[in-house]
């Protein structure tokens, strides 16, 4: 694969937080993956698995403890002030809560134009035009420009958040659970908008979510995270058809299927234990004490994510059905 095909490369990224008493919370621990240009990579996992922290570290909101992130081939650690500024424009973030992520005292036009002002893009007159263009692009209209966030529904607010991100002509978007706070019919609207924008603007997404059916729908590839590590990473069809990692299998079995006949015949895997505290994790596989397939070796050895063939990366293949 040509180097310039990769928009983002993450290598051995760690984000450790000191939580007092000499304890460390390894929110992101030795994570490596890449995203191709125009690709949508989904990132799933339970709350507390580190997916938001990973997203924010990739966007350079947090400085990583160790490891490297390359954007368009350029390493973060090698970037000078101008490069960083450029990066902060080209990579944008969309947040989960459309209520708290918009300043209630700014009009929609001000919210959307703010980034362009900061980056000194366009003249003021052109910026005003851009705001209208952007609002149209995300399915809002000119009349919305002078309104305040409280006048909008959740779905419309999320559209404002998207317009704000697109204003800076980004190549890469980190979407942190952008649809979790919305109603089902509105979720579908926003997801369709994301897909449409990728076609129109050639965007690349890291799409963080915990709704696995929506993630499958939108993503090309999906990474499953558990306690700070990526445990499986493959194309979305392959992941749902043939999960290798026992945790992925468990996660998939928990999704309720909107079909009563299928659902009544389905077996939901019930694990005895809840997710352990991510502080001071034991040696060995972090899923060990919940895993139905666990053996003695799992308790001792931490498994590394590796290519099991055909671009199906997994740290474990105990749940694998086909060979």
């Amino acid at each position: 694969m040509a180097q310039n095909d990769l928009i983002l490369e993450v290598e051995h990224l760690c984000q450790h937080f000191s939580v007092g008493g000499g304890a460390t919370l390894k929110a992101v621990d030795d994570v490596s993956f890449f995203i191709r240009r125009r690709e949508i990579v989904g990132l799933v996992g339970e709350s507390g698995c580190g997916k938001t922290t990973l997203g924010r570290t990739v966007k350079q909101i947090y400085k990583p403890t160790s490891g490297e992130v390359r954007f368009n081939g350029k390493a973060f650690s090698q970037m000078d002030k101008n490069d960083r500024r450029e990066f902060s424009r080209r990579a944008q973030m969309i947040f989960q809560d459309p209520y708290s992520s918009l300043d209630p005292r700014m009009t929609v036009a001000e919210i959307v134009a703010e980034g362009m002002e900061i980056h000194g893009m366009y003249t003021e007159a052109r910026r005003r035009e851009r705001v209208i263009e952007l609002l149209n692009l995300v399915g809002l209209s000119k009349e919305h420009a002078n309104r305040f966030p409280h006048e909008f529904s959740g779905g419309q607010r999320q559209r404002v958040g998207i317009a704000r991100a697109l204003a800076l002509e980004p190549e890469f978007l980190v979407c942190d659970e952008p649809i979790s706070a919305l109603d089902v019919s509105i979720q579908a609207q926003i997801v369709n908008l994301f897909k449409e924008l990728r076609e129109k603007l050639g965007l690349t997404y890291l799409f963080i979510a915990h709704d696995l059916s929506m993630v499958k729908y939108i993503s090309d590839r999906i990474a499953v995270m558990y306690l700070g590590r990526i445990v499986e990473l493959t194309t979305s069809t392959e992941l749902y058809r043939n999960p290798y990692h026992p945790y992925t299998e468990f996660l998939l079995s928990a999704i309720p299927v909107p079909d009563p006949d299928l659902e009544s015949g389905r077996e939901h895997v019930r694990l005895a234990k809840e997710m352990p505290s991510p502080i001071n994790l034991p040696e060995g596989c972090s899923f060990y004490d919940r895993c139905p397939y666990a053996c003695e070796a799992c308790r001792k050895n931490k498994m590394e994510l590796r290519d099991m063939g055909g671009g199906h990366w997994s740290a474990c293949d105990k749940a694998r059905k086909e060979s």
Binding site: S153, V184, Q187, S213, Y217, P258, D259
Partner: peptide, 24 residues
């Protein structure tokens, strides 16, 4: 019907756009 069509199915084709309900 629209509510049911707006939910992505794990076994469904994900290239077709999801049905969504226009408006609020």
């Amino acid at each position: 019907r629209s509510l049911l069509a707006a939910v992505p199915r794990l076994d469904a084709d994900s290239t077709a756009p999801l049905e969504h309900i226009v408006g609020s």
